[in-house]
Design a protein around this nucleic acid. Sequence first.
DNA 1: TTGTACGCGTTATCAA
DNA 2: TTGATAACGCGTACAA
Lengths: 346, 346
Amino acid sequence: MPVTIKDIAKVAGVSHTTVSRALNGNPAISFETTERIQQLARQMGYVPSAVAQSLLSRRTQTIGMVITTIADPFIVHVVEGAEQVAQEAGYSIFLNTSHNNPDQEMAVVETFQRRRVDAIIVTSSRVGSLYSSQLDQIKVPIVLINNQEEGEFLYSVAVDNFQGAQLATEHLLTLGHRRIGYVGAADRPKSNGQRLEGYATALSQAGLTLDPALVISPPAGTDLERGRASLETLRAEHATAAFCYNDLTAIGLLLECHQQGISVPQELSIIGFDDIEPALYTTPTLTTIHQPRFKLGQLAMTMTLKLLDGQAVQDQRLPCKLIVRESTSQRMTNGESQIANLKSKI
Amino acid sequence: MPVTIKDIAKVAGVSHTTVSRALNGNPAISFETTERIQQLARQMGYVPSAVAQSLLSRRTQTIGMVITTIADPFIVHVVEGAEQVAQEAGYSIFLNTSHNNPDQEMAVVETFQRRRVDAIIVTSSRVGSLYSSQLDQIKVPIVLINNQEEGEFLYSVAVDNFQGAQLATEHLLTLGHRRIGYVGAADRPKSNGQRLEGYATALSQAGLTLDPALVISPPAGTDLERGRASLETLRAEHATAAFCYNDLTAIGLLLECHQQGISVPQELSIIGFDDIEPALYTTPTLTTIHQPRFKLGQLAMTMTLKLLDGQAVQDQRLPCKLIVRESTSQRMTNGESQIANLKSKI
DNA sequence: TTGTACGCGTTATCAA
DNA sequence: TTGATAACGCGTACAA
């Protein structure tokens, strides 16, 4: 059993109140006894019980964080950003995964209630509608990161999907591409819609009309699989470039190109979204849209702590950045691309 | 403020003791009142306070988990495995990162003590020696995963580095390679040593003597950088194959080969260790040694819960598996490899 | 300057 | 079958 202030009190021959005050540096206690008790506490290996403190203060200094899966190279950095801010402020994080399972997500929220977390942060939730029913009962602030549901939530931090998609599409347009495919993700309706809009807007600003045949929504599967599946349509529609919903989709497409002997970027330019590490490991390296993942987490946690401090906060929308690497290049005619292709292989 | 049993008691017109019993299904309470109170509790949105329960039971149903960084594609799956087991058992995890910073790791352990976690799980710690001093004071069980320090610890789960390295080296030997380099990681002395031993043993069992010039320990840097840096020595020593400490190192080496126009596996076979996702995204895909990451986490948590249940446990050492992909191939003579190289490019 | 008494939300013991 | 009371570890209002 851990040492308590009563144990110290007994040894020091004072009341536990005095010990409490001495340890908290209460000026009412004489310098002598304060000194003596603090030393005693150290000797006895005293560590205050956050449990008891929480019961009294009605604050656990604890944040519940729910993510879809920790095995996501994107989310992981969001968590790290949040963790850093929390740790510095003396808060601890309960991390729980929902695996996009509504039941599990509800269970997680209930666990958080039992544990009396001071606030909840949710990333990329696709079951936001469920919250609204629970929301009334949950009294703690809920901050959403890259929320995937339509509807107004109290607090949210998100990336500017529209602007990011515009950047990506403009990049391809600048390179001379005219038949640009969009490989979407139907299971993330909100961000997918926003990115599609950015894509469409960039096209129309360039005086092009959107060809619905170039908007591809492969059936369910992993991001990687959907990327692979999209190649057939892209080829059939004579696309010379593709903007993918995210990097994993882009990598899937890239791998399929390798398999079918289609050279990237000579025959097809590919751009992703997210800027996860593996984008640097592919051949060619992946041009992509960088999301400030770490900052997203930091901001969400900062916002949360402000809320707990009674401060007013505003929703945040962070801009993306274009990262040009090797998977995109000037559009070529058929002949040009074949020659370039051969040259690149020598 | 959340609803308490006293609130319910007041509404129900009974004592809070009765409410507590009714909610816990105590058979001493009449079926009628039990029913009535449970319904009332549901209506009022009552959720028991884990904080208060913990204070009394001296159990928080909480596990502290410390990892070096969450941005590690290997560790992430370990955490997921642990999380799954914990969640099923009603335990929650406090996840904290140490960034290989001894001070921070000490701070994390102190936080865990304050929070009265029931046990602590530590992965890939390189500051194990620090624990021994704190260890005496910490009364909770500590389970180590892939511990990087020499010395006997109470409980540990680890992968069989020696066997994995043997597998890797034997694979290269079977392919006809004789000059096989080992690209190590000096900053993980224990696992690096074990993998080096496995490598050496496989060589000697094949009747070869280890050439120290082929054991490469690039100076500090990221895994990726060290992989890149190793190419020069590998070429100078006429290595036809390389066994890398981990996948990131192997990927670094692979990227450097691309940059210098050295084709893999025609001119150099490369094998990694870990089997992280990005190993599937490279060109060629990476042959590697699979570590049961998820299982490692599951096992560690299972062991922890057993300990908390007073059961005896035994240290675990899990075997690795060889995953053959495209980055390794039959050893070729210089001429052969150049021809194969050209062929592959057509 | 220090001590007494109480309460945070819950469960366990004892009494009714 | 139910209720009063104490206890878990801590902080604080009030009293001395």
